[in-house]
């Protein structure tokens, strides 16, 4: 098992074949779709979908997301869908760049860090994975309750387990997929899923991430 600080590092290891499979974000999957295969996608509340949240400090009088103009904003990771791409695409749809809309923005390289940054007041608002925010609300309510949701995005493909396309025929990948998909039927597997607050893993078509691909395109077109 290998952990890295940034999405970019994990994606590089995966694409280069140094690791066989990784739990990555939908955004790098879309970016390296040609080199990657989907192994399985987590299912949350019965669907392999999640949302991106724009959050701010609890109790702040905010009507809609446009009131976040001029904030210091915390992003998660430049290769994160929910923690960067969704907000960037939202701004692109409104003909704006993050540096124009926010007074300052920075990356915390972790969804939990985004919540910490907003809760502490280091940033006035942040872009965070909705799944992480909801799970942390159960685990660390004292931290998460110091933030509130300003905007929820549309439902998007849940960060999948992906493998390098070059290993498509590798039996270990198939075994991994089977293990993941059958996890909900296994006692030990259910313990893991309960810890992750997930229902199980599903085999999903690549089209699940088309909405993310569309956001990438929106951003690309706006520049």
């Amino acid at each position: 098992m290998v952990s890295r600080r940034t999405y970019q590092e994990i994606t590089a290891l995966l694409v280069s074949g140094q690791i066989h499979a990784a739990w990555i974000c939908g955004y790098p999957y879309v970016q390296y779709k040609a080199d990657l295969d989907l192994v399985a996608t987590p299912s949350w509340h019965g669907k392999p979908l999640y949302q991106s949240y724009l959050i701010t400090t609890q109790g702040r009088d905010v009507g809609d997301w446009t009131r976040l103009h001029g904030d210091i904003h915390a992003f998660s990771d430049p290769d994160s869908n929910s923690g960067f791409l969704v907000t960037r695409a939202l701004l692109a749809e409104n003909r704006m760049l993050p540096d124009q809309f926010f007074s300052r923005n920075f990356f915390t390289y972790g969804h939990r860090n985004v919540i910490r940054a907003v809760a502490s007041g280091l940033a006035q608002s942040g872009s965070v994975d909705g799944y992480v925010w909801e799970v942390m609300k159960e685990i660390e309510p004292s931290l998460v309750n110091r933030t509130m949701i300003v905007r929820k995005s549309e439902w998007l493909g849940f960060p999948p387990i992906a493998s390098a396309k070059s290993l498509a025929s590798d039996s270990r990948i198939a075994a991994l997929r089977d293990a993941l998909v059958s996890m909900s039927g296994d006692r030990e597997g259910r313990k893991v899923l309960e810890m992750l607050r997930l229902d199980g893993f599903l085999v999903t078509p690549p089209a699940l991430f088309d909405t993310i691909a569309a956001k990438v395109e929106t951003v690309r077109q706006f520049g």
Partner: peptide, 11 residues
Amino acid sequence: GDVWEVFDALD
């Protein structure tokens, strides 16, 4: 100029 890393270290 990494705001978060500095804050995280202080925290």
